[in-house]
Design a protein around this nucleic acid. Structure first.
Lengths: 91, 91
DNA sequence: CGAGTATTTTGATGTGCGTCAAAATAGTTG
DNA sequence: CAACTATTTTGACGCACATCAAAATACTCG
């Protein structure tokens, strides 16, 4: 992972609602848009927007089933971000 | 570290220039405002602003000596952020 | 096909913030 | 004290973006 990508991920996780949405997905099994709306008291449009940001960054993937779109995290992406930070020579 | 603080740190590192400034400080020994200005082609005011953000978050500390203000990183703070991310149960 | 539900897209709005120039402050040195 | 340098603060500007309402799309089921 390069600095630019890491910065984009940091920026994405730097919004409180988006970070909370990511946690809901990453720490659960699977979630769909409606569940996220309920838990965060955000409009469907806003939630869909945040989910798109996370998806575009590769932090989550989606799968359509019937009316719902289920989101699931991509742990490898998160690990890559973590790895990038860990390899900074902070002293 | 709590979620709110972690989010603020992520937000701070989510700006490309500020992240780059943090790296310059964290990966070097000590740096002062002028050096950061030179390396990033940013005005003194902008650099001072970013340094204040990093300082307020506890990611760096400052020390005044003569005309210059020297900045140094606080690795424990960065580690705490890293630790918080690592302990998320991402699956 | 038509009614109903879930999600996404669009358009608009307000705000947060990165940036700079310039003024203000702090410190050094003749 | 006066001139000079480094940093911070202030004020203003423009843009990015989080948010919502509403329209549009996608899908299911009578």
């Amino acid at each position: 992972m390069k600095e630019q990508e890491a910065t984009l991920i940091a920026k994405a996780l730097g919004d409180p609602n988006r970070f909370s949405i990511y946690r809901q997905i990453a720490e659960g099994e699977e979630t769909y848009c409606g569940e996220v709306c309920d838990k965060h008291t955000l409009s469907p449009g806003t939630v869909s927007h945040h989910l798109k940001v996370l998806t575009d960054l590769g932090l989550v993937t989606s799968r359509k089933e019937g009316l719902n779109v289920y989101y699931r995290s991509v742990p490898e992406k998160f690990s890559a971000y973590l790895g990038f930070l860990q390899h900074l020579n902070v002293k």
